[in-house]
């Protein structure tokens, strides 16, 4: 009995220790990043671990200006926003049709679309780049948003279809006794009931494309059109001399999303979990 108790205590101690190590491992790099962003260059070299001796807020002004963060945020917001505006209606319409209507060739067309799920994200980046060249979509924010909408349409449709199917049968007829168009039934009756599914698309697809780098770095050569991740990678490659400013830029690229995450943690976690089946 005593032995059992000690072994339990040992497990607890090891577990707690592991938890604390993990906690530090996850959070300290971020704290370090913010500390570093507020130091003087000299402080940065000599005082590696601790908080800044003097807080240099100007680093942020400098980083915002030199890394052109304002413009890059606007670009990212624009591209992600436009992407969602295309992605959600196309996926919802197609998913509704596949889930609740009957038409010839339905199953074949659906399986055709599902083939898209077999191709892991990013494998086709280079052929996709060539396609964008031939369609004249290079160096265009709109072009990138449309392309994102194309690469994620298969998975989004698949996901939304699950939501439409789980709604009770005959809902459209019941709600539209006095008659409404088929599109009206979809838009006014069914679509509002699938808000949780749409939330998942917004979070999962939104975040995937907000952080996307591979394709964005190839198709947005002009600095004025680049997204936050692309801009960040370039800034790091070109300005690796004043480290505190680099760290300030990193913080500027990270902190807003972290705040959004902390505020809507629940929907963030459930959205990512439900969406990530595709990996």
């Amino acid at each position: 009995m005593v032995e059992k108790k000690t072994s339990k205590v040992v497990v607890m101690v090891i577990g707690y220790a592991a938890m604390i190590v993990c906690l530090l491992l996850c959070v300290y790099p971020l704290i370090w990043m913010v500390f570093g962003s507020l130091k003087t260059t000299n402080d940065f070299y000599t005082n590696i671990w601790g908080p800044p001796i003097k807080f240099i807020w100007e680093n942020y002004v400098e980083a915002w200006r030199r890394a052109d963060m304002g413009r890059r945020y606007l670009n990212s917001v624009f591209i992600t926003g436009l992407f969602l505006l295309i992605n959600i209606p196309t996926a919802c319409c197609a998913a509704y049709s596949f889930a609740r209507l009957r038409f010839k060739g339905q199953q074949k067309l659906y399986l055709f679309l599902l083939c898209g799920i077999m191709i892991p994200t990013g494998v086709l980046t280079l052929p996709l780049y060539s396609t964008m060249v031939s369609l004249g979509l290079i160096n265009s924010r709109v072009g990138l948003a449309i392309t994102y909408a194309g690469t994620s349409v298969a998975f989004s449709t698949f996901m939304m279809r699950g939501f439409f199917i789980s709604l009770p049968k005959g809902l459209e007829e019941a709600a539209c006794i006095d008659g409404c168009t088929m599109f009206g039934a979809f838009r006014r009756v069914i679509l509002p009931l699938t808000k949780p599914g749409i939330m998942i698309l917004v979070i999962y697809n939104g975040l995937s494309n907000w952080t996307e780098y591979h394709l964005a770095s190839l198709v947005l050569p002009s600095a004025a059109k680049q997204t936050v991740p692309v801009g960040m990678a370039l800034f790091q490659a070109n300005n690796a001399i004043e480290y505190p400013v680099l760290f300030a830029a990193l913080s500027l690229a990270t902190v807003p999303m972290v705040i959004v995450y902390i505020l809507c943690q629940k929907s963030f976690i459930s959205g990512m979990t439900a969406g990530a089946v595709k990996g």
Binding site: C26, V27, L30, L207, W210, T211, Y213, V228, P229, V230, M232, A233, L250, A253, T254, M257, V258, V260, Y261, Q265, F268, I269, M272
Partner: peptide, 10 residues
């Protein structure tokens, strides 16, 4: 869960 929300680049 924090690192999930950050981009690979950062």
């Amino acid at each position: 869960y924090l690192p999930v929300t950050m981009s690979y680049v950062v």
